[in-house]
Nucleic acid binder design. Structure first.
Lengths: 341, 341
DNA sequence: GTGAAAGCGCTAACAG
DNA sequence: CTGTTAGCGCTTTCAC
């Protein structure tokens, strides 16, 4: 391994001069700098960032923790975060918690010594634990509110509101919300906004929960939805929506003919599905970039940190999985006179 | 930050004893060990892996480099690799090259000082460059043959052979291969095997290349496929297949009615698509786990390394996107008497 | 079984 | 502008 010392020797200067050529070039005469650079290049020298971290206290590494890498919601976020970090000369550790809060905590604790900050994406950990852990390492969070922490929220409420209104406009009077895992801010937010919006639109909302945030969860929920008299379903994410559509189909129900289904994420599988899924966009790539920037700002600010909060817009994209409520699907036990908005 | 020194002081022993309690517990009396452990626990001490790396030369970190995190082929592999690494007490840096060989090289060079080994998944770099770089850091590769390197191959040839025979059995006589990016071993392997299998099955094979390994690539290829007289298409991956099906549909052609389409990967979008995609499984999770183990073995063996090569099976999964060749689609210019197998 | 001391590769005052 | 020195947190001989 070629070290700073080899370069110093080969170029006839002291190690500190070599160090300076890399970490504070303006403090070195152009002549020496060029010579050192040339020698370093020739020897194939690369600074050892771990050693540097020991003296500077900065690792130039970030941790990125997600619940499930294979959930199509995350890859675009990971990709963007990682690209943005690299732009800022940071490398990123990516870790998957398997939706397990304990693993999440363990991960944070082992990672924290090796990174300057940790990005928590849709964490499953309680706020209480997060607040305790923040003494160890700076955090930024995506899709979770923790006071005092740099936060990026994808304002799913906007999309949910539009989705409920969209269903109401199509004549749906009884709608369901297939909720996500507990501990998920997005899930709570969807619940709250959907409840509000349903009341305003004068439609009846049933919340079915909790469901795994996967196609399996959606598939399993089909039993509860079919024959319930509900004709519009808002799902925790696209995967759940796709699973639900499949489960409905197995029961001889068609989408959007018999029921309308809406997902969340605007993920690849949803875009490629037939019928194309009506869904709520989640600006995951933007969130990844922004979260990295907020995190880095907090890292560099140190104590002077003023926790920023970014709210990213979400919008409803109407495609093919929603349509007019089928009269035939209207239940006999329809409330006497639902307020039409 | 609580260091080994704080623990030493608080428990009335020397730092080296604390060090030993963590890295060689058997060299410490049970009594002192327990006391040190208790104190460390109380203080919330966690060893600093970067500092440890400086003396041991082992970072306990791995690098994982992929062409595109958002390509659904990779997330299951990343997830599995990362989980397996953690099992072995390793953390992993994940980096995306955006399909850019130069970025891949740059990444390897900046990462190499911080990791004990690098996992190259479907690299876009030439073998020549990889062989030069291996002096810097141990490698393992997935889906690429580099002699002397621990390798995991997903034997796509098996699946391709089965796919071509499947199309031939269904009566297809002119088939196309929508090839992937150059530099991709998988793509070359598919090409070679498909050519062989087509000759044996007595069908005519046309290779269309190169295509972006995305739905866009497939969509764009639809123009060349439609009206060409080819009735069966084997695509570089599921995404291309899905894009192609979409492009065909836009031209009024149905799958599997007018043409049969086969993908590769058995990815989520393919499974959820209608028609369900006939595809070739790629054991990505198994490959991720195995590659990590081979890499770690190479890292630990040092010079004594004997490069292992693992070949993982792939199989054809027949679903709904393939069917009998439509007589109407048979071209007038059919070769006089194609050998029927 | 435990302490002492050297050193991993690098940076950061401080002199000159 | 460049050299000297000390030290980051930890492991690892080598003594005792």
């Amino acid at each position: 391994m070629v070290t700073i010392r080899d370069v110093a020797q080969a170029s006839g200067v002291h190690v500190s001069t070599v160090s300076r050529t890399f970490s504070a070039p303006h403090l070195v005469s152009a002549e020496t700098r060029n010579r050192v650079l040339a020698v370093a290049e020739g020897l194939g020298y690369r600074p050892n960032r771990a050693a540097r971290a020991l003296t500077t206290g900065r690792t130039h590494n970030l941790g990125l923790i997600v619940a499930d890498i294979a959930n199509p919601f995350f890859p675009p976020l990971i990709k963007a975060a990682q690209a943005q970090a690299r732009e800022r000369d940071y490398h990123v550790f990516v870790a998957d918690t398997d939706e397990n809060p304990l693993m999440e905590q363990e991960l944070i604790e082992t990672l924290c010594k090796q990174v300057d900050g940790v990005l928590l994406c849709s964490p499953r950990l309680s706020n209480r634990v997060i607040e305790r852990l923040r003494a160890q390492v700076p955090f930024a969070v995506v899709n979770r509110r923790v006071k005092g922490l740099p936060t990026v929220l994808m304002d799913v409420g906007q999309g949910v509101r539009a989705a409920v209104e969209h269903l109401a406009d199509l004549g749906h009077r009884r709608i369901a919300l297939l909720s996500g895992p507990s501990g998920s801010w997005t899930s709570e937010e969807m619940h709250a906004t959907a409840t509000d919006a349903a009341a305003e639109a004068g439609v009846e909302l049933t919340v079915l929960r909790p469901n795994e945030p996967t196609e399996q969860g959606g598939l399993a929920a089909a039993a509860a939805v079919a024959g319930s008299g509900m004709t519009g379903v808002l799902c925790h994410n696209d995967l759940v929506a796709l699973g639900l559509i499949e489960g409905l189909r197995e029961r001889g129900l068609s989408v959007p003919g018999d029921l309308s289904v809406i997902g969340v994420d605007d993920s690849l599988p949803g875009r490629l599905n037939r019928p194309k899924l009506t869904t709520i966009t989640m600006p995951t790539a933007a969130a990844g970039r922004m979260a990295v920037d907020l995190l880095l700002a907090a890292v560099n600010a140190g104590d002077a940190a003023t926790a920023a909060l970014a709210r990213l817009e979400t919008t409803l994209i109407v495609r093919e999985s929603t349509g007019p409520a089928a009269p035939s699907a209207l239940p006999a036990r329809l409330p006497a006179s639902p307020a039409v908005r």
